[in-house]
Nucleic acid binder design. Structure first.
Lengths: 223, 223
DNA sequence: TGTGTAATTGTACAAATGACACTATCTACA
DNA sequence: TGTAGATAGTGTCATTTGTACAATTACACA
């Protein structure tokens, strides 16, 4: 059917969420050689009849029990040639980034101990997965500067403090509270509600909400 | 050898250069079905033992006689699933963008009438290639705003007027001469030389030169 | 009612952006 | 030789944006 012998096609996935004031990445412990016992991104081979997108969904479901509805933003990252020094031999890996909230990985049909790790405290990783995660992190950092992408990491109703914490976790640096609020509110990406979050022995925080549930560009960049 | 049946892997290439004050895209006329006689991006199948990068080089050489040294900037764009309504059937296409100067396409070993067309006056295109070109154009527009990517489209020594024309061709809008010069010079991406270009019956223009021959980010964006 | 805790708000200075028009320098030709 | 034609080169002001910085508000609990 196919007169050409293609390289092996794979998908690797960088699933991220916020927890404990940090951006966290989903990793699995490899059950088999190569890199047995080491951590890696969930990934696998693309089979006939699959698009890269549907393959990505299948692999996350089977390896970490994560169904596609759980990911509130999915974006293709980059396609890597995996030749030099890669024990898998010659192949091509299409990588995706998935963002969500309160994701609880479970043992899928292929049990692989899925677990989230803070992006700044990752274990040693198999393959070139450390580079792929660094690439995903850069992409996310830049994306939150000119889009509402952070919506995929937050609940529908959130406080400005939560929003700022999300940006600080993604950008890995502290932000000035007054400047952050002034700037973000001027972008017209969110609107206030009349609800408040009562949290403890202090003034309650007003809850806000994104205008659009889907990815949207802001008129100018955040930073 | 490969226990999995992968989709067909392809590479498509968006080669661009400046000519006649316009950004131009390399197209070939298809010799075979499907889309026989229509224009398309140069592209082809990735064969065993090739990376996507080496496949891209081979395909440009064989289909348009363009050797890799001629492209002064090559960047991967995106990987498209080619399923819905695509006569090739199920496949995955990795797309690259290549930028150069004074590229003269020739009939390669696979003769396909390669020719440059202005990006704003393209003929009807095969497959989803119009979308791929639009994607490449968006990428380039955004890239020249925060990098020195335009260096790949200009000669080593160039005038500020040439530089501005390049930006206008890429961004498809006129720019203010004084603001453009002030802004660009403040970015520290180029330096002046003591050479002048004598062109006709008017004041000669000073020649400038990029500081770095490779891709470099500018401290802030251009636009 | 006082204390602790987090939420909310404004000002002043620096930097960047954007609109806008005239002078300089060369060639060619009368 | 000097004048016309053509492109190169340059500065100011008003507006917007970025950035540094601290006091007050509203609630829970003791």
């Amino acid at each position: 059917m196919n007169p050409y012998q293609s390289p092996i096609l794979m998908v690797d996935s960088v699933v991220m969420q916020l927890a404990n004031d940090a951006l966290q990445v989903l990793l699995i412990k490899r059950a088999n050689q190569p890199f047995q016992g080491m951590y890696a991104l969930p990934g696998g081979y693309i089979v006939a009849g699959e698009t890269t997108v549907s393959s990505h969904e299948r692999i996350l479901s089977s390896k970490a029990g994560i169904e596609k509805q759980v990911l509130r933003l999915v974006e293709q990252l980059y396609t890597f040639d995996t030749v030099a020094g890669d024990p898998r031999g010659h192949g091509v890996s299409v990588t995706y980034m998935g963002l969500g909230l309160d994701i609880i990985p479970t043992l899928g049909s292929e049990t692989q101990q899925p677990e989230f790790f803070p992006i700044n405290a990752l274990p040693q990783l198999a393959y070139d997965h450390a580079e792929i995660i660094a690439y995903a992190h850069e992409r996310l950092k830049s994306k939150v500067n000119y889009t509402n992408a952070v919506h995929a990491l937050l609940p529908v109703y959130f406080t400005l403090t939560q929003l700022q914490s999300a940006y600080e976790a993604i950008l890995c640096r502290p932000l000035d509270k007054r400047n952050f609020r002034k700037k973000f509110l001027s972008l017209d990406l969110i609107h206030e509600t009349n609800e408040y979050q009562r949290d403890g022995a202090h003034r309650p925080a007003r809850l806000f909400c994104f205008n659009a549930a889907r990815l949207e560009r802001s008129p100018r960049s955040f930073d």
